[in-house]
């Protein structure tokens, strides 16, 4: 994982100024204190980190990507709902459950792919895919997905 990402990190100046700078000090600070009083610190750390991530996300993510993320969260919720229903109420029309569930999973995956392809950080990875092409691909994939789902639902 490491080498590929190293290449891409210098190309995105506005987003993560902290990464390279703060890596080494934080590591050296935390190393001695791992064994003792770790549980309390860990929870605090975790909370801090989560807050940090959240703030970073709110600040640095463009509006369009946030829209995609919201859609993905929605898909996850729908998928989870179906799964819970399946566990509780049984999977009787198994076809229906499968196609419903895989519709959410497939759409989630496709949206995640679209998000990756349009992400400026991954420009180097997807040289030949413009944003328009990515969206067209996304529509194409979704159409196949839903064709199969509808066909399979019985």
């Amino acid at each position: 994982m490491a080498p590929k990402n190293r290449q891409s990190t210098p190309q995105q100046p506005p987003k993560l100024p902290t990464t390279t700078a703060s890596q080494t000090p934080s590591k050296s600070q935390s190393k001695p204190s791992t064994s003792s009083s770790s549980s309390v610190r860990n929870t605090q750390d975790a909370r801090q980190i989560a807050i940090g991530v959240w703030n970073n996300y709110i600040d640095a993510t463009p509006q369009r990507v946030k829209l995609l993320d919201a859609f993905m969260v929605f898909l996850m919720a729908v998928g989870l709902l179906q799964f819970v229903y399946c566990v509780i109420a049984g999977n009787y029309p198994f076809n229906a459950f499968l196609s419903g569930f895989s519709a959410t999973v497939g759409q989630f995956v496709l949206t995640a792919s679209l998000r990756m392809q349009t992400n400026a950080e991954n420009k180097a990875e997807f040289e030949r895919i413009s944003h328009e092409r990515a969206f067209a691909d996304y529509v194409f994939g979704s159409m196949i997905l839903h064709f199969f789902c509808v066909n399979f639902i019985n």
Binding site: N5, T19, Q23, S30, I49, G52, V53
Partner: peptide, 11 residues
């Protein structure tokens, strides 16, 4: 990988 790009801490 996504979280990693969001995170400062190596640990």
């Amino acid at each position: 990988e996504w979280v990693r790009t969001q995170l400062p801490s190596k640990q």
